[in-house]
């Protein structure tokens, strides 16, 4: 969009904005419209030359800026006192988000989401149908999701039974809830884990049991939430850079591995056509060991030797339990 065209769009929204927010300052408007104060001043100057057709001075709008920056718009042109309709993209962005949220099992305020959705749908007309071509779904277990939201809203401590797959273990801990987030298709609870004395992110589908306690939640004032712009919360994949690298050779049927396990490197196998060679860095080698066991012969550990031996020993131990059916 050219500079002039985007300025036109801004002005057509600025007039109704100034009418509904009388006394807004240049600074506030600049922030709201995502431009600098200088640009707002320029925009306001243009308004002085816009108005009803007729060519008389009193047909034009008057945008006064007081000392202190408060803007007063007078003689606003009646035809443009309402903002522009939402564009298809704008309608899609909001409607798809509302629909996605309203469909999360166990979400609080579903009723408000549904009502907001219905109102926006009727205000956007045709665009509401186009918005059906894009959808986002989250997985969440309603009971756990409900409890997590309630604890957060009521600021209460929760007791979690949390499954740690790499150790195949259910752990127990008290957590001061800080945030419920929906990321990459899943729901997470972020909170202060009293046992580890740190902020932790818990995947809701791994919470085996959640109890909202009567005790108030008291996360330390300086406890900082994690950067949720990452695809998966950092602590869920906390991997030290000093953790050893494991190299795997993957057969064609195991080529999906790098799509699900973060790999340091992925390359076509130099030896076999269609095979992949990947390296994974895991502080928690158990996770990779379990993956290799799962893949059976479709994966081979190329190194380190120590890790390869460990996987082999685990498999041998497992075989031993089958006795005569599985002679060593």
């Amino acid at each position: 969009m050219s500079t002039a065209v985007s300025q036109v769009e801004r002005l057509l929204n600025l007039v109704p904005y100034l009418l509904s927010h009388p006394g807004s300052t240049v600074e506030q408007v600049a922030q709201e419209f995502g431009v600098n104060a200088k640009q707002v001043a320029k925009d306001l100057n243009v308004l002085w030359f816009c108005g009803l057709p007729g060519g008389f001075a009193d047909d034009l709008m008057e945008a006064h800026v007081e000392e202190g920056g408060a803007i007063h718009l007078e003689n606003a042109a009646e035809p443009i006192v309402r903002p522009l309709r939402l564009s298809t993209r704008e309608a899609v962005a909001l409607l798809v988000a509302l629909r996605a949220l309203a469909q999360v099992p166990g979400i609080a305020d579903r009723d408000a989401l549904d009502r907001a959705l219905a109102k926006l749908e009727s205000a956007t007309g045709e665009a509401a149908r186009v918005a059906e071509r894009l959808s986002v779904a989250f997985e969440a277990r309603d009971v756990v999701f409900e409890a997590a939201q309630r604890a957060l809203a009521e600021k209460r401590l929760v007791h979690l039974r949390y499954y740690v797959p790499s150790r195949d273990e259910v752990t127990e801990r008290d957590v001061d809830p800080m945030r419920v987030a929906l990321l990459a298709g899943r729901a997470y609870l972020e909170g202060w884990c009293r046992a580890s004395g740190a902020v932790r992110v818990f995947r809701l589908d791994r919470i085996v049991g959640i109890e909202v306690l009567d005790q108030p939640a008291q996360p330390p004032a300086d406890a900082k939430g994690l950067d949720l712009t990452e695809e998966a919360p950092a602590s869920a994949l906390r991997v030290g850079q000093d953790a050893p690298l494991v190299t795997l050779e993957l057969a064609a049927e195991a080529r999906w591995v790098p799509e699900y396990y973060p790999c340091e490197s992925v390359a076509e196998d130099p030896g076999v056509d269609g095979f992949l060679r990947v390296t994974l860095r895991a502080a928690d080698q158990d996770r990779i060991r379990r993956l290799v066991l799962r893949l059976g012969g479709a994966a081979r550990v190329l190194g380190p030797q120590e890790f390869a031996d460990k996987v082999r020993d685990t498999a041998a131990l497992a075989l031993a339990a089958y006795g005569a059916d599985a002679p060593a």
Binding site: L248, A251, A252, E253, V272, G297, A318, L319
Partner: peptide
């Protein structure tokens, strides 16, 4: 599956 890992006679995965 376990045998494929415990006794990897094969020289490559798969």
């Amino acid at each position: 599956r376990l045998r494929a890992i415990a006794r990897p006679e094969a020289t490559s995965a798969g």
